[in-house]
Design a protein around this nucleic acid. Structure first.
Lengths: 244, 244
DNA sequence: GTTATAATGTTGTATGTCAAGTTAAATGTC
DNA sequence: GACATTTAACTTGACATACAACATTATAAC
C-alpha cells in the first residue's frame, strides 16, 4: 500500500512547531510579560535541547504574528498584546458544545448583517452569482448529493454582496474554520443530501436580497442559521432575540 | 545621544521578512496555486540569492499561517485558501478613506451587537467594570487629558460583557489595529481631551447595558460610533440604517 | 562622576553535514 | 509492452560552526 499522494497523511509536528506552541503558551500564560525580554537563542536552545536553527524558526513565527519583536544585537522583547498582527482560531475541534454555540452566534451576527447590507448594495453581478449558487444548491438537493461546497459558496456569495471587504475577508476565514469543524463530525451524522426545507431557507435569503428587503434578508439568515444549528445539535444561545 | 532603550527605533526588516512578504504576495497573486508545489529550498535559495537558513525561516512563517504545508522528503505544497489558519489585517495605514469607512462599519456591527448581548447577559462584575471605566473617562474628560486608553478600555469592557468569547477575542484584536490607526493621525488633529458630548454618549451606553435595555444599548453604540467617525472625518457609509 | 574605550553578549546570515523521507529513474519480471 | 521491485537522486528536518553587525556592559581614562 502506498501513501505517496495521500494529503490526509498524519503530518508529524516538527521540533520548531513544538517549540513555537510552547513559547506561545508561555507568553499567553504570562511567564513572559509585555515589554520583558526572552532568554537568548542560545539559552532557549540549551533549555529545549534543540539546535539554534529550531529556536530561530520558532521565533520567526512569533515575530511574524507580532507576539515578539527583535533587533539585531539585543534580545527579543514581548510586545503588548494589543499589537498582535493576526487573529488566530486554533484548537476549535476540542472546544465544548457551549463554546461552539458562541461561535455560531458570532457567525450569525456577521452573516445576518452581511445580508442586511447586501440587500441594499447588491450589484447585478452579485445577484447573478447568488442565482447561480441557488441553482447549484437546487441540483445538489435534487441529486441528493452532499452539497457542502455549494452551501459554503452560497453563504460566501451573500457576504461578498455586502460590499464590505473586511466583513467579506473575515467571513471567508471564519467559514473555512467552521467548514472544517462540520466536516470533522460529518462521519457521525451520516446524513446525505440537503433536506428540502434547507433549500427553501436559502431561496428566502436570495429573494430578500435580490428584492432589496434588508430586514427580511437579515431575519431570513437568522432563521436559517438557527435551524442549521438545531439540525447539528448545537447549543444555540440567543437566536430568539429577534423573535420575542 | 543614545537610542538604546527607545522602542520606536526603525526596525530594519531582515532578509527572511522580505522573502516572506515576497512569497506571500506571489501565492496571493496566484503564481503558485492551491495544491501546487513550491520550488525546493535550494532553488529558492539560489533565486533570492540568500542562504537556506533565510528561506527556511520564511517558509516556517508561511507554514505557521497555514499557507503552505510540508512533509519531510517532499516539497512544500500550497494549501487551499479556505484552510488559512489566521486572519491578518496588515497595511491598514495605507488604505484609502473609503476602505477605512468599511472598517468602521465592520466595527460598528460587532460593537453594537456586543452591546445588545451585553445588555442581556452582563454580570455584576461586568457592570462594576463598566462603572469603573466610565468613572475613569469622567476624570479624563475633566482633567482634559487624552483619554485614549480609558476609551479603549470602556469599549473592550462592553464587548467582554457580551459573554461571547469569540466576539470578545476578535474585538480585542480589531481594536488594537484601529487604535494604532487612530494614533497614527493623532498628530494631525492635535485635539486634547475628550469633548463632553462624547462622554455623554459613553454614559448612554453604560445606562442602557446596566438597565438591560438591549435595543437602546445597540443604538447608543451606533450613535456613538457614527459620531466618532464623523469627528475623525471618516467617510461613513451606512450608519443611518437604523435612523431612517 | 563623566566620558571614551574595550570586552562581551546577541541576533542575522552563511555554509556544511547528516539523517529521514519522498520521488523518480532504472531494472527486472512476466 | 505492462507491471512490480529496487536503486538512485532529490528534498526537508535538524545540527554544528563561523562570522558580521549591532547592542549592552564592564573597564579605563580623565
Amino acid at each position: 500500500m502506498k501513501f505517496s499522494h495521500d494529503p490526509k497523511l498524519k503530518r508529524v509536528p516538527g521540533l520548531s512547531e513544538q517549540v513555537t506552541d510552547f513559547l506561545v503558551s508561555e507568553i499567553e500564560m504570562g511567564s513572559y510579560k509585555s515589554g520583558e525580554v526572552l532568554p537568548s537563542e542560545a539559552k532557549l536552545s540549551a533549555r529545549f535541547e534543540v539546535s539554534r536553527t529550531v529556536i530561530r524558526e520558532a521565533l520567526a513565527r512569533l515575530k511574524y504574528d507580532g507576539l515578539i519583536e527583535s533587533r539585531q544585537g539585543s534580545k527579543c522583547r514581548v510586545v503588548e498584546s494589543t499589537a498582535k498582527r493576526v487573529f488566530r482560531l486554533d484548537k476549535l475541534e476540542d472546544r465544548d458544545s457551549n463554546e461552539i454555540g458562541y461561535l455560531y452566534e458570532f457567525r450569525a451576527i456577521l452573516e445576518s448583517e452581511s445580508a442586511f447590507l447586501a440587500a441594499k448594495r447588491r450589484s447585478k453581478k452579485d445577484i447573478a452569482r447568488l442565482d447561480r449558487c441557488v441553482e447549484a444548491l437546487n441540483q445538489a438537493t435534487q441529486k441528493g448529493i452532499d452539497g457542502t461546497t455549494e452551501n459554503v459558496n452560497f453563504h460566501m456569495a451573500v457576504v461578498d454582496a455586502s460590499g464590505n471587504p473586511f466583513l467579506s475577508d473575515f467571513m471567508h476565514f471564519l467559514s473555512g474554520k467552521i467548514w472544517a469543524l462540520v466536516q470533522a463530525d460529518r462521519d457521525h451524522s451520516k446524513q446525505k443530501g440537503l433536506p428540502p426545507e434547507v433549500q427553501q431557507e436559502h431561496v428566502a435569503i436570495f429573494e430578500a436580497i435580490s428584492t432589496g428587503n434588508q430586514n427580511k434578508a437579515r431575519e431570513a439568515v437568522l432563521t436559517h442559521l438557527k435551524n442549521a444549528a438545531e439540525r447539528r445539535g448545537i447549543n444555540i444561545l440567543n437566536f430568539d432575540r429577534f423573535f420575542c
